[in-house]
């Protein structure tokens, strides 16, 4: 764990008297794609916020490699209509960016020419891509995406995953992706971590072969960017009973 970009050891976080996370050991190595899954309220966003330093751990600790640059794409961001804010200005917060770099990054994430548009006038898909552009402009060692495909349809999600895989190829950045989908994950994930207050299980995703039932499930045109994760719990208790479709997945996988 010494060469990890970011690591949590024995991490616990509570909101008042309500424990959100306990005894979490978690790390991301350079260049690694990690997908974090778990049911609603399992502490995924809390873990991300603890890693970012937004919430303070009640026990354990978070260590970051010195000088670590993090690009963060939040789950949701409400830009208030009372603040006039163009895409170009938003991308220059807090670090001013050159106009040509902004244009190139917008083109790269697939929304070229949006510079002068207002943030409040963007569609859901455009907004997510602008958030990604902002995170990438920081030239991050680690890119954290918190349910970044929320609100995207399946082809949109597939295109987004493709883009993320491309970012890793081009920049070598490690990627931590949070997904609320317990079974369908990005196929390029090196590791899938299943969280439910603590780390339930982790492993590699199953790349789905050409089975027609999965073609039907994922739709066409996802270019093999999506895969299944098979939950394999090394311990049994009620807290992890979300993995019921495991049998189903195992039958095909």
């Amino acid at each position: 764990m010494t060469d990890a970009l970011i690591a949590a050891e024995g991490l616990a976080v509570s909101y008042g008297a309500t424990p959100a996370l306990h005894n979490v050991d978690f790390s991301v190595a350079p260049g690694e794609i990690v997908t974090l899954i778990g049911p609603n309220g399992s502490g995924k966003s809390t873990l991300v916020r603890a890693l970012l330093g937004v919430v303070q751990p009640s026990a354990g600790r978070v260590t970051r490699r010195p000088g670590l640059r993090v690009g963060y794409v939040p789950q949701k961001l409400a830009v208030d209509a009372r603040m006039p804010l163009t895409v170009a200005r938003f991308l220059s917060l807090p670090v001013p960016q050159r106009g040509d770099e902004i244009a190139a990054m917008l083109a790269r994430v697939g929304v070229a020419g949006l510079e002068r548009r207002q943030m409040t006038g963007l569609s859901g898909g455009q907004f997510q891509r602008v958030l990604l552009a902002r995170a990438l402009l920081a030239d991050p060692h680690l890119l954290i995406l918190d349910e970044a495909t929320q609100g995207l349809d399946q082809p949109g999600t597939a295109a987004f995953y493709e883009l993320i895989a491309e970012v890793r190829r081009d920049t070598g950045a490690a990627i931590l992706m949070v997904s609320h989908d317990l079974h369908v994950v990005m196929s390029a994930s090196d590791r899938v971590v299943c969280l439910n207050g603590h780390v339930c299980c982790q492993g590699q995703p199953h790349v789905v072969t050409a089975a027609p039932e999965y073609r039907a499930l994922f739709g066409l045109g996802t270019h093999g960017t999506m895969a299944l994760y098979r939950h394999k719990h090394d311990h049994a208790h009620d807290a992890c009973d979300h993995a019921a479709p495991e049998k189903e997945a195992a039958d095909v996988g």
Partner: peptide, 19 residues
């Protein structure tokens, strides 16, 4: 100025940017 604007847009984005 830039830090204040970033914090106003989002505390989390600002924290991730080291503010």
């Amino acid at each position: 100025w830039n830090a204040l604007l970033t914090v106003t847009v989002s505390d989390d984005l600002a924290t991730a940017a080291g503010l």
